[in-house]
Design a binder for these strands. Sequence first.
DNA 1: CTGAAAGCGCTTACAG
DNA 2: CTGAAAGCGCTTACAG
Lengths: 343, 343
Amino acid sequence: MTTPNPKRRATVHDVARVAGISHATVSRYLNKRAYVSQASAEAIEAAIRSVNYTPNRTARSLVTQSTRAVAFVVREYSEFFFADSNLSAMAAAANKTLSAEGYQMLLVIIESDEAAERIVDLIIGGFVDGALLVAMRDDDPVAEAIARSTIPAITASAPELPVGLPSVDTDNAGGSRAITRLLADSGRTRLAEIAGPAPMPAARLRHGGFVDARGAAYDPRLSIAAAEWSVEAGTAAMRELLERGEPIDGVVAASDALAAGAIDAIHAAGLTVPADIAVVGFDDSPWATRIRPTLTTVRQDPGATGRRMAERMMAHLGGEALDDVAEVIPNVIVERESTAPSS
Amino acid sequence: MTTPNPKRRATVHDVARVAGISHATVSRYLNKRAYVSQASAEAIEAAIRSVNYTPNRTARSLVTQSTRAVAFVVREYSEFFFADSNLSAMAAAANKTLSAEGYQMLLVIIESDEAAERIVDLIIGGFVDGALLVAMRDDDPVAEAIARSTIPAITASAPELPVGLPSVDTDNAGGSRAITRLLADSGRTRLAEIAGPAPMPAARLRHGGFVDARGAAYDPRLSIAAAEWSVEAGTAAMRELLERGEPIDGVVAASDALAAGAIDAIHAAGLTVPADIAVVGFDDSPWATRIRPTLTTVRQDPGATGRRMAERMMAHLGGEALDDVAEVIPNVIVERESTAPSS
DNA sequence: CTGAAAGCGCTTACAG
DNA sequence: CTGAAAGCGCTTACAG
């Protein structure tokens, strides 16, 4: 049983006193052993053990202006974060990369506005040396505050901010463009789109890819934005699309979950996938192979995304400039049953 | 008007100078607005904006001796952590509870010995006000170093350490005991056990529950410890159990993954579950309903575990003593096909 | 190789 | 209500 403030922690002064030496020498020994005599070193070692000394990281950080810690900030509810294998793979890869360089990754999940404020204060207050920002919304106050600060930050999916932020991201636009073309090339002509929720950069970019691929054939009456990245939202969106009465023979959904929901709605309407309507998703999440028909989708490389974010941060913290460039990680299309030829 | 030197961060002194007031008053204003005059307050506000001031958390922490951050330390590979819904639910619940009290949870995943050392240095160095320790091994150097330090820590599944640590945990022993009795009460008499990997507290406790429930009927020849918490390890363990030649009509596996592996091995041997051999797991993970037959298992309440860890930490940081008690969260048994009566 | 001193950016009694 | 001063625990030129 311990009490909140038990006995005082030993400081470098305690060690110095017990070792019969100045605290400056103790500090020198703790950092670069080089310039300390053998005798002093031994006395210090013994003193450290005897007073049970452990250096205060806060004091050290205050003078060195560095914490050797980097925040990995997830702007998403835990349930979604833990269920999203792409996000967790990014986190895992970043953790490994930072760790290998001796940096500590601190994973932070923002679930409320108060948490958002608190985290901004922490980060721009220098609690960490840098921040990796994930799942930010367009116009996100967290991303914006950090972007305006002096602490280095890199984001996955660059949000639309007044001030830019370097980013690393899967090729959202390109993936969406490619999978839309796949559908068109298979002879489908009435392509509908279920876009992701408007405030998300990934949703915006994927929408852009769809519009781009459709070119002159783009028809706003066949596009709808889902309320969130969920199966239910996909069902609701597809239902409304069908109710509009426009003929549809293909659907480009901005995520696998949305696609899964769309397929439910299509089946509920008495239609068949892919015979009547082909459907494609995005993410290659577990949904893609769990549902029937299995889903043609875009597979990301989240490990590469997380790794590159961490590598760029390490390079910057190592002294290199951090350019505001949007690095794009290629993705691949995985064809499955949901776009099989009608035969 | 902008910052004189854009490279240097503004400090409380810059604000004071611009506001024409002492830095002590600025600090007072920043903390408890009460004792600052209206005129000063306005001058300070303007100065803060003009120099773009944000308080340095490290400096503040050094004097207040508090960071208002708590580490949630996971001693497990990311892949396992993110795949384990019990662990992530614990983290999510702890995050919510800490967040509601204004504390920031920092999730840290230890994947190497160097990371382990680094995190110990950080934590006992006062980088956080407290630590929640999860998935520690018995005799874990991380848990031990933190237990010996002055910083408050609570663990899920108390490891066997020379010095105690308060803990909150699902009822491992009780759950194992109850599900073993369920099997015995259904008329099975030759009960084998696939225990978890030896160095884990949860494995030890579940094993204890099994031994306890078997009493005089406990037969070491029917017990084996899996090499890790994986399906493959379960298959290997079950295969060896069958090769020993002892008759078996029931298996108590220490986790659902282990049970899933055991069922594979049983089927491979040409036997049937539950007709020939009943099988039970632990965790009520997604495995439990994904495999055939569906699994009778112990359902934990990971949300309650995470919440209680956080609540006890908050109470302690709020001034209460932190007793070294092992708090046990009840769990329930979920019966499914794998123990259906042979009929 | 080592000590005295300054300083990192804040908070907080202590006077006034 | 406010300023001067001390101090949180460390690191790091600067002399010697």
